[in-house]
């Protein structure tokens, strides 16, 4: 096979930030994304926002999925977004948040640049579909 054949693959970072040890959801989503043919980089637990920024920038992922169940999204998500802006990685990264997010906060997060928030009850198909449809076209 040719080395010149274009092989566009969707790359995702599934990230756990802050002091939140609930990673079942992150694992399940990592697997669902993998089975959908995506390349998934899992951050591991208890990551600092700067680590997530570092990983997003270096891995050049198309999608950053942040899983937060600790309620600290109002602090952590803006920190990550600031970091991404600093490294010019905000514009072409699709940012998703998963977890327990109150409606008011959801609006606020979307204001900041989060594309979609997935709460309890969101299905895998729904998420995979959303990613496929909204993945940014990288120049």
């Amino acid at each position: 096979m040719s080395a010149d054949q274009e092989q566009r693959t969707i790359r995702c970072l599934v990230a756990k930030v802050g002091l939140d040890g609930h990673d079942r959801g992150a694992h399940v989503i990592s697997r669902a994304f993998r089975d959908a043919g995506f390349e998934v980089i899992y951050s591991g637990l208890h990551r600092a926002p700067e680590e997530i920024v570092q990983a997003t920038v270096q891995e050049d992922v198309d999608v950053l999925g942040i899983s937060i169940l600790s309620g600290a999204h109002d602090t952590l998500v803006p920190e990550i977004i600031d970091g991404l802006e600093e490294y010019d990685a905000f514009e072409d990264t699709l940012i998703l948040v998963g977890g327990i997010i109150p409606d008011d906060d959801e609006a606020e997060l979307k204001e900041l640049g989060v594309s979609e928030v997935f709460g309890p009850g969101a299905s895998m198909e729904q998420m995979v579909e959303y990613v496929r449809e909204n993945v940014p076209e990288k120049e």
């Binding site: 693959t9 990592s30 697997r31 994304f33 993998r34 089975d35 959908a36 043919g37 995506f38 390349e39 998934v40 980089i41 899992y42 951050s43 591991g44 990983a55 891995e59």
Partner: peptide, 13 residues
């Protein structure tokens, strides 16, 4: 995965 082409890349952890 040879089937879906998907992968979980875990070395970063």
């Amino acid at each position: 995965s040879p089937f879906t082409g998907g992968a979980v890349l875990g070395d970063r952890i």
